[in-house]
Design a protein around this nucleic acid. Structure first.
Length: 313
DNA sequence: AATGTGCCCTGAGGGC
DNA sequence: TGCCCTCAGGGCACAT
């Protein structure tokens, strides 16, 4: 559920507290939070303790905190990488706070000016994870992501495309890629190696704004349609960001545990059976790629002969 | 190479 | 009351 706007809210909340802070201690309460990490929980704790965080950075839905170089004998770890998965949260708490319900990892840090904080990684559905990773140069020599001081990304994030709000995102390359893709446009929007940061909610919203059926082959879209879609993707992401993200339940929150307000602004996602805000006909829901797609069959028409989605009873 | 499918996980909510 | 089912879905391993 956390997509680009939600993850960016977390990054922006984390950045002032962690930049320049020293990791005083690390506690792994549940090793499932380290599925992307090759070592043991003890190794993770040891490798991170004592390190100094340089910033909080983000590309798409991936977060990372570049670290200042550790001692020469320390294991190679250039950054702490976090992915929230579906239900992950990074919370800023005061030291000694009681454990969150689904707390998986706790970092105690000390900021040179703001004092001590506890960074809690909590995750109900355990699809999120933390890991330590090396940083590799970006092929285009542009900054690795928002909040990254240099042109590097964690190696595990290298295959993730830049997100559409990244100044180094290349619209032309995006159009070229879409022209070669025969997959449904909804699938392509969710492909983080094509563009990152868009998940099920904002894919449905952008397609609704652009009046494009989610099953339309990407290559069938005109240049004009792709440009409109990209503009609508950026529009929904920016508006959601301005409202602090989307939340349906207690799963997505900022670093202070507060929910965003964008759910009130959704036009298609989660509105099955409700009138389309544009034409008044009911929003329909189909199951597609093991996910739900919500759209207006009138405003977003499609040639059924090429429609790969199937109705949900 | 490109495309599509299945699975990891927990808790909420509906039906009976 | 409680049990079983479905749903939420990001990312990746795997199959074709």
């Amino acid at each position: 559920m956390p997509e680009l706007p939600e993850v960016e809210v977390v990054r922006a909340g984390l950045d002032p507290a962690v930049t320049g802070a020293t990791v005083l201690g690390v506690t792994v309460l549940d090793e499932r939070a380290l599925t992307r990490y090759s070592g043991s929980a003890a190794q993770f704790e040891a490798a991170l303790t004592g390190r100094v965080v340089r910033s909080a950075a983000r590309r798409g839905k991936f977060l990372w905190m570049p670290l200042q170089p550790g001692p020469d004998d320390a294991p190679a770890a250039d950054a702490l990488v976090a992915h929230l998965g579906m239900s992950g949260q990074l919370l800023l708490r005061t030291p000694g706070t009681a454990a969150e319900r689904h707390e998986r990892v706790r970092l105690d840090i000390q900021h040179p000016e703001h004092g001590e904080f506890t960074v809690v990684f909590a995750d109900q559905r355990t699809f999120g994870s933390l890991t330590l990773d090396t940083l590799v140069p970006t092929p285009d020599a542009a900054p690795g992501g928002l909040g990254s001081p240099d042109a590097t990304v964690p190696s595990q994030v290298a295959h993730i495309a830049r997100d559409p709000l990244d100044p180094a995102f290349r619209d032309l390359e995006f159009r070229t890629t879409l022209a070669r893709k025969k997959s449904a446009i909804k699938r392509v929007l969710l492909d983080q190696s094509v563009l990152s940061g868009v998940g099920n909610i904002y894919a449905d919203e952008a397609l609704w704004h652009s009046r494009i059926h989610p099953g339309t082959p990407a290559s069938a879209l005109s240049t004009r349609a792709v440009n409109r879609l990209l503009a609508d993707v950026r529009g929904v992401l920016e508006r959601a960001l301005a409202e602090g993200g989307t939340s349906f339940d207690a799963q997505y929150v900022n670093v202070n545990g507060q929910a965003g307000y964008f759910a009130h602004s959704l036009n298609a996602y989660g509105r099955t059976g409700e009138p389309c805000p544009r034409c008044g006909r009911p929003i329909v829901r189909v199951s597609f790629m093991n996910r739900s797609s919500h759209y207006c069959a009138h405003c977003q028409p499609f040639d059924k002969r090429r429609d790969r989605s199937r109705p949900v009873s």
